[in-house]
Amino acid sequence: MLGGLIGGALALATAQLVGTALMQGLGVPIPGAVAGLLFMLVTLAIAGGVPQGLGRVADVLLRHLNLFFVPAGVGLMAHLALLARDGGALTVAIAVSTLSGLVVAGFVFVWARKRSGSVS
């Protein structure tokens, strides 16, 4: 079981490395981790299934995805002065644009799906 978990963690790290190397080699501005995601997806499709250890490591990482953003949240403190730039314009723009993008994406998805007739 432990071997499976270690193997799973290694597989994730390897995929990220391959993705990073590929994108740097090709000079494409896509982060290595995103390229690694695609590489992992292709590998799983070829293998035809998810090894148990890999599945468990992935589940743990994704369940605690928020943890990995906490240092960035703390880092905000260092940039608080920057956010005061241009009065409240920045803050208002962030709130307005985030929520409009979110609502448009949600509505378009529901609408397009109804139109395509594949209502689930």
């Binding site: 994730l12 690694g36 490591v57 992935a58 994704l62 995805l65 943890l67 990995f68 240092p71 880092g75």
Partner: peptide, 19 residues
């Protein structure tokens, strides 16, 4: 904090599994 930020990479790759 950098150790936790570093795990964002493998966590992003891990999105391939539920996908």
């Amino acid at each position: 904090g950098i150790w936790l930020l570093a795990l964002l990479g493998p966590a992003t790759v891990a999105l391939a599994i539920p996908l």
